[in-house]
Design a protein around this nucleic acid. Structure first.
Lengths: 248, 248
DNA sequence: CGGAACCTTGACGCGTCTCAAATCCAGTGG
DNA sequence: CCACTGGATTTGAGACGCGTCAAGGTTCCG
Protein backbone atom coordinates (compact mmCIF):
# COMPACT_ATOMS: atom_id res chain seq x y z
CA UNK A 1 0.00 0.00 0.00
CA UNK A 2 1.04 3.50 -0.65
CA UNK A 3 1.62 5.09 2.71
CA UNK A 4 4.08 7.67 1.45
CA UNK A 5 3.54 11.36 1.36
CA UNK A 6 1.35 12.64 -1.51
CA UNK A 7 2.29 10.63 -4.55
CA UNK A 8 5.22 12.13 -6.40
CA UNK A 9 3.56 11.08 -9.64
CA UNK A 10 0.55 13.23 -8.81
CA UNK A 11 2.94 15.94 -7.77
CA UNK A 12 4.80 15.79 -11.05
CA UNK A 13 1.69 15.57 -13.23
CA UNK A 14 -0.02 18.39 -11.34
CA UNK A 15 2.93 20.53 -12.27
CA UNK A 16 1.51 20.60 -15.80
CA UNK A 17 -2.27 20.51 -15.53
CA UNK A 18 -5.06 20.46 -12.92
CA UNK A 19 -6.01 16.81 -12.79
CA UNK A 20 -9.70 15.98 -12.96
CA UNK A 21 -11.38 13.32 -10.86
CA UNK A 22 -11.18 10.55 -13.42
CA UNK A 23 -7.48 11.20 -13.80
CA UNK A 24 -6.84 11.08 -10.05
CA UNK A 25 -8.84 7.86 -9.76
CA UNK A 26 -6.80 6.27 -12.50
CA UNK A 27 -3.52 7.36 -11.01
CA UNK A 28 -4.28 5.98 -7.58
CA UNK A 29 -5.04 2.67 -9.25
CA UNK A 30 -1.57 2.76 -10.83
CA UNK A 31 0.09 3.20 -7.46
CA UNK A 32 -1.58 0.44 -5.48
CA UNK A 33 1.47 -1.78 -5.05
CA UNK A 34 5.01 -1.11 -3.97
CA UNK A 35 8.18 -3.08 -4.31
CA UNK A 36 11.77 -2.43 -3.27
CA UNK A 37 14.91 -3.26 -5.21
CA UNK A 38 18.57 -3.03 -4.28
CA UNK A 39 21.35 -1.21 -6.03
CA UNK A 40 22.37 -2.96 -9.24
CA UNK A 41 19.30 -5.18 -9.31
CA UNK A 42 18.02 -5.67 -12.83
CA UNK A 43 14.27 -5.31 -12.65
CA UNK A 44 13.78 -6.67 -16.14
CA UNK A 45 15.89 -7.75 -19.09
CA UNK A 46 15.61 -7.28 -22.81
CA UNK A 47 13.38 -10.04 -24.16
CA UNK A 48 11.40 -10.48 -20.94
CA UNK A 49 7.67 -10.54 -21.20
CA UNK A 50 6.34 -7.10 -20.93
CA UNK A 51 3.23 -6.77 -18.81
CA UNK A 52 4.11 -4.17 -16.20
CA UNK A 53 5.04 -0.54 -16.03
CA UNK A 54 6.52 1.11 -12.96
CA UNK A 55 6.08 4.38 -11.16
CA UNK A 56 9.33 5.37 -9.45
CA UNK A 57 8.79 6.27 -5.79
CA UNK A 58 12.37 6.53 -4.61
CA UNK A 59 15.90 6.31 -6.05
CA UNK A 60 17.49 6.50 -9.50
CA UNK A 61 17.37 3.81 -12.16
CA UNK A 62 18.46 3.60 -15.75
CA UNK A 63 17.54 1.71 -18.90
CA UNK A 64 20.24 0.39 -21.15
CA UNK A 65 20.78 -1.68 -24.26
CA UNK A 66 23.92 -3.55 -24.99
CA UNK A 67 25.60 -5.22 -27.92
CA UNK A 68 26.75 -8.79 -27.97
CA UNK A 69 30.37 -7.78 -27.55
CA UNK A 70 29.61 -5.87 -24.36
CA UNK A 71 29.40 -2.30 -25.57
CA UNK A 72 26.60 -0.65 -23.66
CA UNK A 73 24.44 2.43 -24.17
CA UNK A 74 22.34 3.84 -21.35
CA UNK A 75 19.26 5.26 -22.99
CA UNK A 76 17.37 6.84 -20.14
CA UNK A 77 17.83 7.79 -16.52
CA UNK A 78 14.75 7.48 -14.33
CA UNK A 79 13.98 9.61 -11.28
CA UNK A 80 11.24 9.59 -8.66
CA UNK A 81 7.90 10.54 -10.22
CA UNK A 82 8.79 9.05 -13.60
CA UNK A 83 6.84 6.25 -15.19
CA UNK A 84 9.19 3.58 -16.52
CA UNK A 85 8.33 1.38 -19.43
CA UNK A 86 6.22 3.45 -21.80
CA UNK A 87 8.50 3.05 -24.76
CA UNK A 88 8.01 -0.70 -24.51
CA UNK A 89 4.23 -0.77 -24.43
CA UNK A 90 4.19 -1.02 -28.20
CA UNK A 91 6.03 -4.34 -27.95
CA UNK A 92 5.30 -7.56 -26.17
CA UNK A 93 8.92 -7.98 -25.15
CA UNK A 94 11.26 -5.64 -23.34
CA UNK A 95 13.58 -3.71 -25.60
CA UNK A 96 16.00 -2.72 -22.85
CA UNK A 97 17.24 -3.61 -19.40
CA UNK A 98 16.11 -1.70 -16.32
CA UNK A 99 18.67 -1.47 -13.56
CA UNK A 100 18.64 0.22 -10.17
CA UNK A 101 21.46 2.75 -9.84
CA UNK A 102 20.90 2.66 -6.08
CA UNK A 103 18.31 1.22 -3.69
CA UNK A 104 14.88 2.06 -5.09
CA UNK A 105 11.16 1.70 -4.50
CA UNK A 106 8.79 1.13 -7.43
CA UNK A 107 5.02 0.79 -7.96
CA UNK A 108 4.41 -1.83 -10.63
CA UNK A 109 1.11 -1.75 -12.50
CA UNK A 110 -0.15 -3.89 -15.36
CA UNK A 111 0.04 -2.39 -18.81
CA UNK A 112 -3.51 -3.58 -19.34
CA UNK A 113 -4.67 -0.92 -16.87
CA UNK A 114 -3.96 1.65 -19.53
CA UNK A 115 -7.03 0.70 -21.57
CA UNK A 116 -9.13 2.17 -18.78
CA UNK A 117 -7.10 5.34 -18.89
CA UNK A 118 -7.80 5.75 -22.57
CA UNK A 119 -11.52 5.03 -22.33
CA UNK A 120 -12.28 6.68 -18.96
CA UNK A 121 -9.71 9.41 -18.44
CA UNK A 122 -8.99 11.17 -21.73
CA UNK A 123 -7.33 14.04 -19.93
CA UNK A 124 -4.81 11.75 -18.29
CA UNK A 125 -4.36 9.91 -21.57
CA UNK A 126 -3.52 13.17 -23.28
CA UNK A 127 -1.13 14.13 -20.51
CA UNK A 128 0.69 10.82 -20.62
CA UNK A 129 0.85 11.16 -24.37
CA UNK A 130 2.29 14.62 -24.07
CA UNK A 131 4.92 13.58 -21.55
CA UNK A 132 5.81 10.62 -23.65
CA UNK A 133 6.38 12.60 -26.81
CA UNK A 134 8.24 15.20 -24.84
CA UNK A 135 10.58 12.46 -23.81
CA UNK A 136 11.21 11.93 -27.44
CA UNK A 137 12.34 15.52 -27.82
CA UNK A 138 14.61 15.12 -24.83
CA UNK A 139 16.04 11.98 -26.34
CA UNK A 140 16.52 13.84 -29.57
CA UNK A 141 18.50 16.52 -27.78
CA UNK A 142 20.64 13.78 -26.34
CA UNK A 143 21.18 12.29 -29.74
CA UNK A 144 22.52 15.63 -30.88
CA UNK A 145 24.84 15.69 -27.89
CA UNK A 146 26.17 12.20 -28.52
CA UNK A 147 26.34 12.64 -32.27
CA UNK A 148 27.86 16.08 -32.48
CA UNK A 149 29.48 17.22 -29.26
CA UNK A 150 32.92 16.79 -27.73
CA UNK A 151 33.37 14.97 -24.44
CA UNK A 152 33.41 18.16 -22.40
CA UNK A 153 30.30 19.45 -24.08
CA UNK A 154 28.47 16.19 -23.52
CA UNK A 155 29.19 16.23 -19.82
CA UNK A 156 28.06 19.83 -19.59
CA UNK A 157 24.88 18.83 -21.35
CA UNK A 158 24.20 15.91 -19.06
CA UNK A 159 24.70 17.94 -15.92
CA UNK A 160 22.40 20.73 -17.02
CA UNK A 161 19.76 18.29 -18.16
CA UNK A 162 19.81 16.40 -14.88
CA UNK A 163 19.57 19.60 -12.94
CA UNK A 164 16.52 20.75 -14.91
CA UNK A 165 14.78 17.45 -14.42
CA UNK A 166 15.42 17.29 -10.72
CA UNK A 167 14.21 20.83 -10.26
CA UNK A 168 10.71 19.89 -11.46
CA UNK A 169 10.17 17.59 -8.50
CA UNK A 170 12.15 19.64 -6.02
CA UNK A 171 11.65 23.34 -6.52
CA UNK A 172 13.88 24.29 -3.64
CA UNK A 173 16.91 22.79 -5.37
CA UNK A 174 19.94 25.00 -5.60
CA UNK A 175 22.92 24.59 -7.88
CA UNK A 176 24.10 21.44 -6.12
CA UNK A 177 22.68 17.98 -6.63
CA UNK A 178 23.45 14.38 -5.84
CA UNK A 179 24.73 12.29 -8.75
CA UNK A 180 24.45 8.58 -7.86
CA UNK A 181 26.11 7.32 -11.04
CA UNK A 182 29.70 6.22 -11.36
CA UNK A 183 31.88 7.35 -14.23
CA UNK A 184 31.47 4.10 -16.12
CA UNK A 185 27.72 4.63 -16.08
CA UNK A 186 28.12 8.23 -17.16
CA UNK A 187 30.34 7.12 -20.00
CA UNK A 188 27.65 4.70 -21.12
CA UNK A 189 25.13 7.50 -21.12
CA UNK A 190 27.30 9.76 -23.22
CA UNK A 191 28.98 7.31 -25.57
CA UNK A 192 32.46 7.77 -24.06
CA UNK A 193 34.80 5.70 -21.89
CA UNK A 194 35.10 5.94 -18.14
CA UNK A 195 38.68 7.15 -18.54
CA UNK A 196 37.72 10.03 -20.75
CA UNK A 197 34.81 10.96 -18.53
CA UNK A 198 37.30 11.26 -15.71
CA UNK A 199 39.59 13.49 -17.74
CA UNK A 200 36.81 15.70 -19.06
CA UNK A 201 35.17 16.04 -15.68
CA UNK A 202 38.52 17.08 -14.24
CA UNK A 203 38.96 19.60 -17.05
CA UNK A 204 35.57 21.19 -16.39
CA UNK A 205 36.41 21.39 -12.73
CA UNK A 206 39.83 22.87 -13.40
CA UNK A 207 38.18 25.56 -15.53
CA UNK A 208 35.95 26.46 -12.62
CA UNK A 209 32.72 25.46 -14.33
CA UNK A 210 31.73 22.87 -11.76
CA UNK A 211 32.79 21.48 -8.42
CA UNK A 212 32.56 17.87 -7.22
CA UNK A 213 32.53 16.35 -3.78
CA UNK A 214 31.47 12.93 -2.51
CA UNK A 215 28.83 12.10 -5.06
CA UNK A 216 27.53 15.64 -5.49
CA UNK A 217 27.99 18.12 -8.30
CA UNK A 218 27.75 21.86 -8.08
CA UNK A 219 27.09 23.99 -11.15
CA UNK A 220 29.31 27.05 -10.83
CA UNK A 221 29.09 28.68 -14.24
CA UNK A 222 25.66 27.80 -15.50
CA UNK A 223 25.71 30.25 -18.39
CA UNK A 224 29.07 29.19 -19.71
CA UNK A 225 28.07 25.56 -19.49
CA UNK A 226 24.80 26.23 -21.28
CA UNK A 227 26.66 28.06 -23.98
CA UNK A 228 29.19 25.41 -24.83
CA UNK A 229 26.46 22.81 -25.37
CA UNK A 230 23.57 24.96 -26.66
CA UNK A 231 21.44 23.81 -23.77
CA UNK A 232 17.68 24.33 -23.87
CA UNK A 233 15.54 23.35 -20.91
CA UNK A 234 12.74 21.12 -22.17
CA UNK A 235 11.40 20.26 -18.75
CA UNK A 236 9.74 23.42 -17.54
CA UNK A 237 6.70 23.95 -19.71
CA UNK A 238 4.16 21.78 -21.47
CA UNK A 239 1.58 22.94 -24.00
CA UNK A 240 -1.75 21.56 -22.85
CA UNK A 241 -3.93 23.74 -25.05
CA UNK A 242 -4.92 20.84 -27.28
CA UNK A 243 -6.05 18.60 -24.40
CA UNK A 244 -9.65 17.40 -24.37
CA UNK A 245 -11.85 19.35 -21.96
CA UNK A 246 -11.47 18.03 -18.44
CA UNK A 247 -14.61 16.30 -17.20
CA UNK A 248 -14.04 15.88 -13.50
CA UNK B 1 -8.53 17.79 -51.51
CA UNK B 2 -7.39 14.29 -51.18
CA UNK B 3 -7.88 12.65 -54.52
CA UNK B 4 -5.03 10.20 -54.10
CA UNK B 5 -5.34 6.46 -53.88
CA UNK B 6 -6.44 5.12 -50.48
CA UNK B 7 -4.67 7.20 -47.88
CA UNK B 8 -1.25 5.82 -47.07
CA UNK B 9 -1.85 6.84 -43.46
CA UNK B 10 -4.86 4.53 -43.31
CA UNK B 11 -2.81 1.92 -45.05
CA UNK B 12 -0.03 2.18 -42.54
CA UNK B 13 -2.28 2.28 -39.49
CA UNK B 14 -4.37 -0.62 -40.75
CA UNK B 15 -1.21 -2.63 -40.83
CA UNK B 16 -1.43 -2.72 -37.04
CA UNK B 17 -5.10 -2.81 -36.08
CA UNK B 18 -8.56 -2.92 -37.66
CA UNK B 19 -9.66 0.70 -37.47
CA UNK B 20 -13.15 1.37 -36.14
CA UNK B 21 -15.52 3.93 -37.59
CA UNK B 22 -14.62 6.72 -35.20
CA UNK B 23 -10.98 6.24 -36.02
CA UNK B 24 -11.56 6.37 -39.77
CA UNK B 25 -13.68 9.50 -39.38
CA UNK B 26 -10.95 11.19 -37.42
CA UNK B 27 -8.27 10.23 -39.89
CA UNK B 28 -10.12 11.57 -42.90
CA UNK B 29 -10.45 14.84 -41.03
CA UNK B 30 -6.68 14.92 -40.64
CA UNK B 31 -6.14 14.54 -44.37
CA UNK B 32 -8.48 17.22 -45.70
CA UNK B 33 -5.82 19.57 -47.05
CA UNK B 34 -2.78 19.06 -49.22
CA UNK B 35 0.26 21.17 -49.87
CA UNK B 36 3.35 20.66 -52.01
CA UNK B 37 6.91 21.63 -51.16
CA UNK B 38 10.08 21.56 -53.20
CA UNK B 39 13.36 19.86 -52.43
CA UNK B 40 15.28 21.66 -49.68
CA UNK B 41 12.29 23.75 -48.63
CA UNK B 42 12.18 24.21 -44.89
CA UNK B 43 8.57 23.69 -43.88
CA UNK B 44 9.15 25.05 -40.40
CA UNK B 45 12.05 26.22 -38.27
CA UNK B 46 12.98 25.76 -34.65
CA UNK B 47 11.18 28.45 -32.64
CA UNK B 48 8.27 28.77 -35.06
CA UNK B 49 4.81 28.68 -33.63
CA UNK B 50 3.61 25.18 -33.49
CA UNK B 51 0.00 24.72 -34.52
CA UNK B 52 0.11 22.13 -37.29
CA UNK B 53 1.08 18.55 -37.77
CA UNK B 54 1.59 16.96 -41.17
CA UNK B 55 0.72 13.67 -42.77
CA UNK B 56 3.31 12.80 -45.42
CA UNK B 57 1.68 11.86 -48.73
CA UNK B 58 4.71 11.75 -50.98
CA UNK B 59 8.48 12.12 -50.74
CA UNK B 60 11.10 12.02 -47.98
CA UNK B 61 11.73 14.70 -45.40
CA UNK B 62 13.88 14.98 -42.33
CA UNK B 63 13.93 16.84 -39.03
CA UNK B 64 17.15 18.27 -37.74
CA UNK B 65 18.58 20.38 -34.95
CA UNK B 66 21.72 22.40 -35.26
CA UNK B 67 24.17 24.13 -32.99
CA UNK B 68 25.15 27.75 -33.30
CA UNK B 69 28.48 26.88 -34.86
CA UNK B 70 26.83 24.92 -37.65
CA UNK B 71 27.14 21.35 -36.45
CA UNK B 72 23.94 19.58 -37.37
CA UNK B 73 22.17 16.44 -36.24
CA UNK B 74 19.34 14.92 -38.25
CA UNK B 75 17.01 13.39 -35.73
CA UNK B 76 14.37 11.72 -37.83
CA UNK B 77 13.70 10.77 -41.42
CA UNK B 78 10.07 10.95 -42.53
CA UNK B 79 8.47 8.77 -45.19
CA UNK B 80 5.03 8.66 -46.82
CA UNK B 81 2.41 7.56 -44.29
CA UNK B 82 4.27 9.12 -41.35
CA UNK B 83 2.80 11.84 -39.20
CA UNK B 84 5.33 14.61 -38.67
CA UNK B 85 5.38 16.78 -35.60
CA UNK B 86 4.20 14.63 -32.71
CA UNK B 87 7.30 15.17 -30.62
CA UNK B 88 6.59 18.88 -30.68
CA UNK B 89 2.98 18.80 -29.55
CA UNK B 90 4.13 19.07 -25.96
CA UNK B 91 5.64 22.46 -26.76
CA UNK B 92 4.26 25.63 -28.21
CA UNK B 93 7.34 26.20 -30.30
CA UNK B 94 9.08 23.94 -32.77
CA UNK B 95 12.08 22.13 -31.39
CA UNK B 96 13.55 21.23 -34.76
CA UNK B 97 13.60 22.16 -38.43
CA UNK B 98 11.62 20.18 -40.99
CA UNK B 99 13.18 20.04 -44.44
CA UNK B 100 12.15 18.34 -47.65
CA UNK B 101 14.82 15.93 -48.88
CA UNK B 102 13.11 15.98 -52.27
CA UNK B 103 9.84 17.30 -53.70
CA UNK B 104 7.06 16.33 -51.30
CA UNK B 105 3.31 16.53 -50.66
CA UNK B 106 1.98 17.01 -47.14
CA UNK B 107 -1.42 17.18 -45.43
CA UNK B 108 -1.26 19.80 -42.69
CA UNK B 109 -3.79 19.57 -39.87
CA UNK B 110 -4.19 21.67 -36.73
CA UNK B 111 -2.84 20.20 -33.52
CA UNK B 112 -6.09 21.23 -31.89
CA UNK B 113 -7.86 18.50 -33.90
CA UNK B 114 -6.24 15.99 -31.61
CA UNK B 115 -8.53 16.81 -28.71
CA UNK B 116 -11.35 15.23 -30.68
CA UNK B 117 -9.26 12.16 -31.26
CA UNK B 118 -8.74 11.76 -27.54
CA UNK B 119 -12.36 12.32 -26.59
CA UNK B 120 -14.08 10.62 -29.55
CA UNK B 121 -11.71 7.98 -30.89
CA UNK B 122 -9.91 6.27 -28.01
CA UNK B 123 -8.79 3.46 -30.25
CA UNK B 124 -7.01 5.84 -32.59
CA UNK B 125 -5.62 7.72 -29.61
CA UNK B 126 -4.14 4.50 -28.28
CA UNK B 127 -2.73 3.64 -31.69
CA UNK B 128 -1.10 7.02 -32.13
CA UNK B 129 0.25 6.72 -28.63
CA UNK B 130 1.67 3.31 -29.39
CA UNK B 131 3.32 4.46 -32.60
CA UNK B 132 4.70 7.47 -30.87
CA UNK B 133 6.32 5.54 -28.05
CA UNK B 134 7.57 3.00 -30.54
CA UNK B 135 9.34 5.84 -32.25
CA UNK B 136 11.07 6.41 -29.00
CA UNK B 137 12.40 2.88 -29.02
CA UNK B 138 13.59 3.35 -32.56
CA UNK B 139 15.30 6.56 -31.57
CA UNK B 140 16.87 4.74 -28.67
CA UNK B 141 18.27 2.12 -31.03
CA UNK B 142 19.72 4.94 -33.03
CA UNK B 143 21.26 6.47 -29.99
CA UNK B 144 23.02 3.18 -29.35
CA UNK B 145 24.27 3.20 -32.93
CA UNK B 146 25.60 6.75 -32.74
CA UNK B 147 26.98 6.34 -29.24
CA UNK B 148 28.60 2.97 -29.54
CA UNK B 149 29.16 1.87 -33.11
CA UNK B 150 31.91 2.42 -35.66
CA UNK B 151 31.21 4.25 -38.89
CA UNK B 152 30.73 1.04 -40.90
CA UNK B 153 28.36 -0.34 -38.32
CA UNK B 154 26.32 2.83 -38.24
CA UNK B 155 25.83 2.80 -41.97
CA UNK B 156 24.83 -0.84 -41.86
CA UNK B 157 22.35 0.05 -39.18
CA UNK B 158 20.86 2.92 -41.11
CA UNK B 159 20.41 0.90 -44.27
CA UNK B 160 18.69 -1.98 -42.50
CA UNK B 161 16.47 0.37 -40.57
CA UNK B 162 15.39 2.24 -43.68
CA UNK B 163 14.67 -0.98 -45.47
CA UNK B 164 12.46 -2.25 -42.65
CA UNK B 165 10.53 0.97 -42.52
CA UNK B 166 9.95 1.15 -46.23
CA UNK B 167 8.81 -2.44 -46.30
CA UNK B 168 5.83 -1.64 -44.05
CA UNK B 169 4.30 0.62 -46.66
CA UNK B 170 5.46 -1.36 -49.67
CA UNK B 171 5.28 -5.08 -49.06
CA UNK B 172 6.52 -5.95 -52.50
CA UNK B 173 9.87 -4.30 -51.83
CA UNK B 174 12.90 -6.38 -52.61
CA UNK B 175 16.43 -5.85 -51.38
CA UNK B 176 16.87 -2.66 -53.39
CA UNK B 177 15.55 0.74 -52.42
CA UNK B 178 15.90 4.35 -53.38
CA UNK B 179 17.94 6.53 -51.02
CA UNK B 180 17.26 10.20 -51.73
CA UNK B 181 19.80 11.55 -49.25
CA UNK B 182 23.26 12.77 -50.06
CA UNK B 183 26.28 11.77 -48.03
CA UNK B 184 26.36 14.99 -46.09
CA UNK B 185 22.81 14.32 -44.96
CA UNK B 186 23.67 10.75 -44.08
CA UNK B 187 26.63 11.95 -42.08
CA UNK B 188 24.34 14.28 -40.15
CA UNK B 189 22.05 11.37 -39.37
CA UNK B 190 24.87 9.21 -38.09
CA UNK B 191 27.12 11.71 -36.37
CA UNK B 192 29.94 11.40 -38.92
CA UNK B 193 31.41 13.55 -41.68
CA UNK B 194 30.52 13.31 -45.34
CA UNK B 195 34.07 12.24 -46.11
CA UNK B 196 33.97 9.35 -43.75
CA UNK B 197 30.55 8.28 -44.93
CA UNK B 198 32.01 8.07 -48.41
CA UNK B 199 34.91 5.94 -47.23
CA UNK B 200 32.80 3.63 -45.10
CA UNK B 201 30.19 3.21 -47.80
CA UNK B 202 32.92 2.29 -50.23
CA UNK B 203 34.34 -0.19 -47.74
CA UNK B 204 30.98 -1.92 -47.29
CA UNK B 205 30.62 -2.10 -51.04
CA UNK B 206 34.12 -3.46 -51.52
CA UNK B 207 33.34 -6.19 -49.01
CA UNK B 208 30.32 -7.19 -51.05
CA UNK B 209 27.77 -6.31 -48.37
CA UNK B 210 25.93 -3.76 -50.49
CA UNK B 211 25.83 -2.34 -53.99
CA UNK B 212 25.08 1.24 -55.01
CA UNK B 213 23.90 2.76 -58.24
CA UNK B 214 22.37 6.12 -59.09
CA UNK B 215 20.67 6.86 -55.81
CA UNK B 216 19.69 3.27 -55.04
CA UNK B 217 21.11 0.82 -52.53
CA UNK B 218 20.96 -2.94 -52.71
CA UNK B 219 21.40 -5.07 -49.61
CA UNK B 220 23.51 -8.04 -50.64
CA UNK B 221 24.44 -9.66 -47.34
CA UNK B 222 21.56 -8.91 -45.03
CA UNK B 223 22.61 -11.34 -42.33
CA UNK B 224 26.19 -10.15 -42.15
CA UNK B 225 25.02 -6.55 -42.00
CA UNK B 226 22.53 -7.36 -39.26
CA UNK B 227 25.23 -9.11 -37.31
CA UNK B 228 27.78 -6.33 -37.30
CA UNK B 229 25.27 -3.86 -35.89
CA UNK B 230 23.04 -6.12 -33.76
CA UNK B 231 20.06 -5.05 -35.82
CA UNK B 232 16.55 -5.74 -34.54
CA UNK B 233 13.55 -4.85 -36.66
CA UNK B 234 11.22 -2.73 -34.55
CA UNK B 235 8.83 -1.94 -37.36
CA UNK B 236 7.00 -5.20 -38.00
CA UNK B 237 4.84 -5.84 -34.97
CA UNK B 238 2.91 -3.75 -32.48
CA UNK B 239 1.34 -5.02 -29.29
CA UNK B 240 -2.26 -3.80 -29.30
CA UNK B 241 -3.52 -6.06 -26.53
CA UNK B 242 -3.88 -3.18 -24.10
CA UNK B 243 -5.95 -1.01 -26.45
CA UNK B 244 -9.42 0.03 -25.31
CA UNK B 245 -12.21 -2.04 -26.92
CA UNK B 246 -13.02 -0.72 -30.38
CA UNK B 247 -16.44 0.82 -30.56
CA UNK B 248 -17.04 1.24 -34.26
C1' DC C 1 43.92 -3.49 8.69
C1' DG C 2 42.50 -5.49 4.32
C1' DG C 3 39.81 -5.50 0.27
C1' DA C 4 36.74 -3.91 -3.28
C1' DA C 5 35.04 -0.48 -6.01
C1' DC C 6 36.00 3.59 -8.00
C1' DC C 7 38.79 7.35 -9.76
C1' DT C 8 43.05 9.23 -11.69
C1' DT C 9 47.13 9.39 -14.52
C1' DG C 10 50.42 8.17 -18.21
C1' DA C 11 51.90 6.27 -22.66
C1' DC C 12 50.57 4.91 -26.88
C1' DG C 13 47.55 3.60 -30.87
C1' DC C 14 43.76 4.18 -33.88
C1' DG C 15 39.47 5.87 -35.93
C1' DT C 16 37.66 9.65 -37.46
C1' DC C 17 38.12 14.62 -38.71
C1' DT C 18 40.01 18.42 -41.47
C1' DC C 19 41.44 20.52 -45.45
C1' DA C 20 42.12 20.44 -50.17
C1' DA C 21 42.24 18.82 -54.74
C1' DA C 22 40.49 15.80 -58.25
C1' DT C 23 36.84 13.40 -60.39
C1' DC C 24 32.24 12.23 -61.43
C1' DC C 25 27.59 13.28 -62.71
C1' DA C 26 23.07 15.39 -64.00
C1' DG C 27 21.10 19.22 -65.77
C1' DT C 28 21.33 23.40 -68.86
C1' DG C 29 21.97 26.12 -72.69
C1' DG C 30 24.00 26.79 -77.06
C1' DC D 1 25.19 16.63 -79.52
C1' DC D 2 28.54 18.86 -76.87
C1' DA D 3 30.73 22.39 -73.67
C1' DC D 4 29.58 24.33 -69.24
C1' DT D 5 28.24 24.30 -64.58
C1' DG D 6 27.42 23.31 -59.77
C1' DG D 7 26.61 19.75 -56.65
C1' DA D 8 28.05 15.37 -55.02
C1' DT D 9 31.46 11.95 -54.39
C1' DT D 10 36.05 10.27 -54.06
C1' DT D 11 40.86 10.34 -52.72
C1' DG D 12 45.06 11.71 -50.22
C1' DA D 13 47.88 13.55 -46.40
C1' DG D 14 48.23 14.98 -41.98
C1' DA D 15 46.32 16.16 -37.33
C1' DC D 16 43.85 15.21 -33.15
C1' DG D 17 40.38 13.54 -29.92
C1' DC D 18 39.26 9.74 -27.75
C1' DG D 19 40.12 4.76 -26.82
C1' DT D 20 42.98 1.19 -24.78
C1' DC D 21 45.80 -0.80 -21.48
C1' DA D 22 47.90 -0.75 -17.26
C1' DA D 23 49.53 1.00 -12.93
C1' DG D 24 48.75 3.67 -8.87
C1' DG D 25 45.64 6.31 -5.60
C1' DT D 26 41.66 7.12 -3.09
C1' DT D 27 37.57 6.19 -0.45
C1' DC D 28 34.68 3.48 1.99
C1' DC D 29 33.34 -0.38 4.66
C1' DG D 30 33.74 -4.68 7.01
Amino acid sequence: MNTDSPSCLVQKLSHYVALDEHSLDSISRLERDERDFSKNDEIYQGGDENTYLYVVKRGWLYSYADMKDGRRQITEIHHPGDIVGFPDIAFDQRTSVLRAAEDVRLCPFPKKDLDEVFSQAPQLAALLFALSVRNQVILTDFLRAVGRMSARERIAYLLLDLRSRLRIANKSMTTTFRLPLNQTEISDVLGLTNVYVSRSFAALEKDGMIRRSNGHVEILEEEKLAKICDFVDRHVGLDTSWFPPSNG
